[in-house]
Amino acid sequence: MSPLLRLGALPGLALALVAGVAGVQVAAGGGDFRPLQPADACVDRSVTSQADGIEGLTEQLVLLGVDDAACTLDVSREALTLELAQQDEPTDAQVDAVREGLRAAVQELADDDALPPSSELVDEALDSADLNALVAAAIRALPDSVIDDALPTEDVLLRAVDELDVRAILSDLDDADALNTAVQEAVVQAVRDELTDRVRNLL
């Protein structure tokens, strides 16, 4: 066969190969292929964390809270994170939805009895606090029952969420993957500060 004829046969050969691959895919059930759809943010889901303490707790709060915010805004989680990363400033609706989503997440975990007692979180908060050693030692000496009665975890978390500068957090996102990390870091710090300030007042 001449080189010219061989070149002319290439498109037909490529078409035959594509048709063959498509036929195998259909035979294997691939004819029903559809692009993956983003998960419905309004569908309840269980969340877990590999981390412990305040970090693990806030990771669950953020996952649930962002889902709730996306549901409120009638978008997928993926669409919300992409919008926030592409905007210079979040809208009032987005700020309110994220804050209320976090509050709803606290309530959901409380209703499920999934919140640890605050006494389990105090040592971690004190480790990162800039406190006089004697004050820190006095706080650590408080009975767990005193801390838990005075500082219900749900109340501590709600106050921490209310103190968050959500607008600043959402304005500082570099990309769509940064939302969970940015919100979680802010919530972790807010919870630590809230616990430290309130438990110090017990002395």
Rank of each mutant, 00 (worst) to 15 (best):
A105V: 06
R103T: 10
D130V: 06
G56E: 04
P11G: 05
S171L: 07
T48D: 02
D32P: 00
D96V: 14
L80I: 09
V21Q: 12
V191M: 09
A16C: 15
D67C: 00
A85G: 10
D148W: 09
Q94I: 03
D111L: 11
E124H: 07
G31Y: 08
V166L: 03
T153Y: 08
D74H: 11
D162N: 14
S128T: 15
V135Q: 14
V24T: 14
D127G: 08
L115G: 01
A141K: 10
V166I: 14
D172L: 02
A182N: 11
L202I: 07
P143F: 04
S76K: 09
L173P: 13
L102W: 05
T81D: 03
A16E: 08
V47W: 14
L5C: 00
A51G: 00
Q107Y: 04
T58V: 07
T72N: 11
V26G: 03
L57I: 12
L170K: 06
D127P: 02
A160G: 11
D52V: 06
A70N: 08
A176I: 00
L36G: 02
A125P: 11
N132V: 01
A182E: 11
L61G: 03
A141D: 15
S118V: 06
A19L: 14
D162H: 06
R77N: 08
T48I: 07
P35I: 06
A186H: 11
G31P: 13
G30M: 04
G30V: 01
D127Q: 14
A168N: 13
T91M: 09
S49E: 03
N180G: 11
N180D: 13
V183R: 12
T196I: 06
V62W: 12
A39C: 01
A133L: 12
G31L: 05
A137C: 00
R99A: 14
I139H: 02
D67A: 02
A176M: 09
L64G: 07
V43P: 02
A150W: 04
E194T: 15
E163A: 15
D111E: 13
M1W: 08
I147Q: 05
L73H: 10
G29E: 00
P117C: 00
D32F: 06
L7H: 12
D123E: 12
P38K: 10
D174C: 00
D177P: 01
P38L: 04
D32S: 11
D92I: 10
D113G: 08
V191A: 06
L64F: 06
A51P: 01
P3A: 10
V146R: 15
L203V: 07
V75R: 15
L61T: 05
T91W: 11
A97Y: 11
R159H: 14
D130H: 12
S118D: 01
D197N: 06
T58Y: 03
L63C: 00
D112Q: 15
A19H: 04
V191C: 11
D177Q: 13
S128E: 14
T196Y: 02
Q184M: 07
A104W: 04
A14S: 09
A190Q: 10
D111A: 13
G20H: 08
Q107M: 02
D111I: 01
L142S: 05
L202S: 06
F33T: 06
Q189W: 05
V106M: 01
N201G: 15
E83I: 01
A70D: 05
T72R: 15
Q37I: 05
A51W: 08
L131E: 08
Q94S: 14
A137L: 11
D144L: 00
T181Y: 11
S128M: 09
